[in-house]
Design a protein around this nucleic acid. Structure first.
Lengths: 143, 143
DNA sequence: GTACTTGCAAAGCCTTTGCATCATA
DNA sequence: TATGATGCAAAGGCTTTGCAAGTAC
């Protein structure tokens, strides 16, 4: 896992440079914490983690950085059901279960969802960026 | 279409009575406008439509009413990607395309998505309420 | 040295809440 | 007539913006 994160951080540096963005300690830290997180954190959740390493960092640096990462494709934004946006450092294809009560998010991989083709009524009219599948319900703690 | 709305309004009245809710002119109007809307409106978008018929209605009545409808299952809430929540009066199974630029939402029906079973790793641990499929990209106006 | 970033504070949206007034059942 | 609903205004969250100070390149 450490190796994977190192590899992603190299990739991160390359992408930043290509985009003309500076590689600051804050950006590296935020990205590293996001990769290690399994909870699909909101900006505020991620801030807590980040402050364990660097207490002086501010919420809006985290927010702005996540927004920057999003436009670079380094991060996926999850539509929080009306709550704060949640961020996912894993940009590979996968699906999510979301608890409607506590808003925890769980990943899962299920091939059938990935092999479905988008119908031509959509591909003909729209330029497709991606498909998101959300299963909603109650997690074990909230049933 | 008028017939369908009348039928839904009857259904609406029944559901309200069962829940012990009063059937007020505002609630009827809000529900009717939502059924007729094809744009998956936010509370504010719906307010504009509603005010064409009843100018004195307030935004928070619309918001509160939509929230009430949601808990009754009369309305589906769509996770707006960080923007205002969007509401859908069509509670039948269907999928959505969402423009990442102008945030317009388009419905489509595509059987393969509906016939996928949720994997047992999810059904074993969680109580499932529903599955949402969002295709994201650019609509014709935004390409 | 220069242009980009950061941190702070304020402002902006959207949503929720408190409360007096009003209307449904 | 009594409970629940509405409208208004204020408050609460989350996100965005403006600006001076700081930093990567």
């Amino acid at each position: 896992m450490e190796l994977l994160i190192d590899k992603n951080l190299d990739n991160f540096a390359t992408i930043c440079r290509q985009a003309g963005l500076k590689i600051t300690p804050q950006r590296k830290l935020i990205y590293r914490c996001l990769l290690q997180s399994k909870e699909h954190p909101s900006a505020e959740m991620l801030l807590k983690t980040v402050r364990n390493h660097e207490p002086s960092i501010s919420l809006d640096t985290v927010s702005r950085t996540l927004k920057t990462f999003e436009s670079l494709g380094l991060v996926k934004v999850m539509a929080g059901g009306g709550d704060a946006r949640r961020f996912d450092g894993d940009t590979s294809t996968h699906q999510h279960f979301r608890c409607v009560n506590c808003h925890k998010i769980f990943d899962f991989h299920y091939k059938p969802y990935e092999s479905i083709e988008i119908p031509s009524v959509i591909t003909d009219r729209f330029k497709i960026l991606g498909v998101s599948v959300y299963v909603e319900g109650y997690c074990p703690d909230c049933q």
